[in-house]
Design a protein around this nucleic acid. Structure first.
Lengths: 211, 211
DNA sequence: CTAAAATATGAATATCCATTCTACAAGATG
DNA sequence: CATCTTGTAGAATGGATATTCATATTTTAG
């Protein structure tokens, strides 16, 4: 009949979660460095200090580890973007806020972002199976978030009359390429976040001098 | 002593090249659809209508096929970009020309571009081995080409005083994301090349209304 | 037409690795 | 303390597939 008392099972639960996180964290570094296909379960097990068999008590399979990893982080990033949009008042400022938050998030989550960027353009059709649902949906949610923001800016006259979705996509492309190369070079000197302002200027004001 | 006569060996050479191209072309479709790791030599052989062993007469291994494929196309794209830059006169027009050419190339080489985009952000560290040399170098050459173009534009006063390399990178990111999503959706109605003009406007003039 | 050289073949090999399974340990329970 | 439950271990299994190699076919040339 079960003890039924919460405290005990709660601790179990917590410990289970903690171990799960440890595995994810170990896997994150490996996937980031070597990609999905060149990371073996044996390596993950070793890095997480568990036996291979144990991993399967926490995750259905290798893909499940990968997906859990990406999903939770993408979710987190989406949350942060939503909050950022909320706190800014003008359309212009909202765009700048999005840029800032994304750069900061990348700065804070380098390993993840390396996975993420290659995910958004490539793995989608490589690890496909379960992806359409979780990650891709949240990715589109990000694009939509910014697209709506642009739509509002157009209505208010702050922005030119463009296709909001295409423009949002362009912005994300700009950011991703900037972030990705920054991660690759990884010079400890250059600050990624500092690039936020000129990226905002470029996107909002353009490269040309004549208005 | 050899016949020494050229004509004969020339034909051989041509036929060899032709078969090589056939293999590359077959591989292109498969890699594009399923990615490097989920494409087997058996599949390539079948698609190219050769036996597996024969493939190894033309290429050292699977990776060699992949690399040859990407390298030759990237080279081609680079050439086209160089020409495009040459034929335009103003800095502004040169940027627009680059955008046009890249979009047209993507339009014409959908399969390749799908590989390319995932290559530029992801496979680089996954299929790594021989890449640093060929593909990556040519990719950077593209970035540099545009960076120089921007530098000139700054000198002539046409462009604002930005970091040319970062800005070039941002442009390429914009284009890649636009192209990539277009390929995924693949609606036969929307023209990719038609997006060139507003992408040029956006990049040069910015999203905002106030100069 | 026939022998030698060059090509093409695809079954056999060897390696790699995700996943499973049986045995062992630690901790809870009465 | 004995038993039962839960968690951990890592060797064994099975499947996949890149690459090789002995054989067969085609082409060349005398």
């Amino acid at each position: 009949m079960k003890t039924g008392s919460n405290p005990r099972s709660e601790r179990k639960q917590r410990e289970y979660e903690a171990r799960r996180e440890e595995i994810l964290s170990a896997a994150e570094g490996l996937f980031s460095q070597n990609g999905f296909f060149k990371t073996s379960m044996a390596e993950i097990a070793e890095a997480a200090q568990f036996a291979m068999g144990t991993l399967y008590k926490f995750f259905k399979n290798k893909e499940d580890i990968y997906i859990s990893l990406v999903e939770s982080k993408v979710e987190e990033m989406l949350h942060q973007l939503e909050q950022a949009v909320r706190r800014a008042k003008s359309a212009d400022e909202r765009i700048r806020e999005v840029i800032r938050v994304k750069l900061a998030f990348a700065d804070q989550n380098r390993d993840f972002f390396r996975i993420y960027v290659s995910e958004w353009s490539g793995f989608e059709w490589t690890v496909k199976s379960a992806f359409g649902d979780g990650v891709w949906k949240r990715y589109l949610a990000q694009i939509d978030l910014v697209a709506n923001l642009i739509k509002d800016g157009i209505k208010s006259g702050e922005f030119q009359n463009v296709n909001p979705k295409d423009t949002s996509l362009a912005l994300h492309g700009m950011l991703n390429s900037t972030i990705y190369v920054w991660i690759l070079k990884a010079g400890p000197k250059e600050s990624l976040v500092d690039k936020g302002e000129w990226l905002g200027n470029l996107f909002l004001g353009g490269l040309g001098t004549k208005g």
